[in-house]
């Protein structure tokens, strides 16, 4: 009797450990695929978590930001490569839309629509949205583009293979292939300046203070004040990119 009970408990033990071992093997085989479930993990609050606010009502379309960005980051001068640019939207009285961005706003904006036909017109500065669920980071096959612990989307130019999948995946057109480096290139929120305690170049040169950036963890930052006092909107919210570039006064025509 006792012997039998011992046997059955031993059998149970073997069965249980086999189950455990099996779970471990299956679990470790499945584990790498957990990364396929895509969701942003906001890191612990030991580092700032940067976001950007742009006040469309204050933007005067001078293009200083676009110029400063090219100078600061050695972006190629040709009009096909931009980390930061300005668009002018003009909505006519008949409801049609005219958009322009001459050389990304570096050249002068010339209004081609006669004054009498204009319903309203405004400038929209564009730059990387530093999305929390970046579609561009998601698709990089090798891990050459990533979100830094500060929430800034960066490109590792020594590791990028130049497949351009990230350029296809960015809904905002914020990436380009650097013609000399042959790697993807984009706004770094002037990471090199932030780390030196300086403001990003486009924020420094904005004459009207239309741009602010700040730490979303810091509830007293000017950015929080901006978000609290204005009804802000992100671009293409339906794509759920977790964009951290918030616009005040964004018209529904802007894409």
């Amino acid at each position: 009797m006792g012997n039998e009970r011992l046997n059955s408990s031993r059998r149970n033990f073997i069965r249980k450990s086999a189950l455990l071992a099996g779970t471990l093997v299956v679990g470790s085989a499945v584990k790498p695929f957990q990364a396929m479930l895509f969701a942003a993990n906001e890191p612990e609050k030991t580092m700032p978590w940067y976001a950007i606010g742009i006040d469309i009502e204050k933007c005067i379309g001078c293009g200083s930001c676009a110029r400063a960005c090219k100078a600061e980051n050695d972006v190629p001068k040709e009009p096909f490569f931009f980390r930061s640019w300005v668009e002018q939207y003009t909505i006519k009285n008949d409801g049609t839309l005219a958009v322009q961005s001459p050389n990304g706003g570096i050249d002068d904006f010339v209004q081609t629509v006669p004054e009498a036909e204009i319903f309203k017109s405004f400038f929209v500065p564009k730059m990387c949205n530093h999305c929390a669920k970046s579609p561009c980071v998601q698709v990089c096959p090798v891990g050459a583009t990533y979100e830094s612990p500060e929430g800034i989307v960066l490109v590792d130019e020594k590791y990028c293979i130049g497949c351009r999948y990230c350029i296809q995946a960015c809904p905002y057109g914020c990436r380009y292939l650097h013609p000399e480096k042959q790697t993807a290139d984009k706004c770094t929120l002037c990471y090199h300046r932030l780390k030196k305690g300086l403001n990003p170049a486009c924020f420094d040169v904005c004459p009207t203070g239309a741009r602010i950036y700040g730490d979303l963890h810091d509830m007293n930052s000017p950015l929080h004040k901006f978000l609290k006092e204005h009804s802000t909107q992100v671009l293409k919210p339906q794509l759920n990119t977790g964009s951290k570039l918030f616009y005040n006064g964004l018209s529904s025509e802007v894409r």
């Binding site: 980071v137 990089c140 096959p141 090798v142 590791y159 990028c160 293979i161 130049g162 999948y165």
Partner: peptide, 25 residues
């Protein structure tokens, strides 16, 4: 040959980023 850096192509095997559809190619 289409890659900007063809000689880095091996990275897709050594550090495949599993969130990417292209990584397991």
């Amino acid at each position: 040959t289409h890659l900007g850096h063809p000689f880095r192509a091996y990275e897709i095997m050594t550090t495949p980023h599993l969130q990417s559809a292209m990584a397991i190619f």
